[in-house]
Design a protein around this nucleic acid. Sequence first.
DNA 1: GAAGAGTTGTACT
DNA 2: AGTACAACTCTTC
Length: 156
Amino acid sequence: MGWVAIVGGDHGVVRASLPEASPSSALDAVQPEIGVAVHTPEQHIDSRVLITAFCAGEPVDLTDIPIDTRDVSPFFKKAWEACRSIPSGQTRSYRWLAEQAGNARAARGAGQAMARNKLALLVPCHRVVSSSGELHGFGGAGLPLKSRLLAMELGR
DNA sequence: GAAGAGTTGTACT
DNA sequence: AGTACAACTCTTC
């Protein structure tokens, strides 16, 4: 898939980059959180293994990876957890996400949650689509990657 | 299909 | 508290 950089803190993974074309660009993506990284990679070795397997197309369960969402609003947190519960290869709408988070009319807010999701792959925001079931939105060059991830999860 | 209105959560002033 | 913004959704041309 490419290069993925993950930043682990004492309370779980704090930041995970999207699959990038090179190691350096992946590192740039997590630059803001590099300050809280722990210097004991062994603590997050499992996370690394799982992500590696995931990118290889294996049906691993990324839900086991601990994520640090302490400084995130309750709504965002619920939206992310709902997102993590989406089975691999399946998709849900932003509206569905909003319902799980507590307010069915907050679809737009749910979109914000995904947009600011710092934990690429761990919170599979690529499985979230518009209510029409189409892949749209996703800022900039995210769409190609999104469809690639979905295709991979479907076993292709 | 395209355009507009309705709603909500967050960040900033 | 008030305002602007957003990876939304539903209703109407």
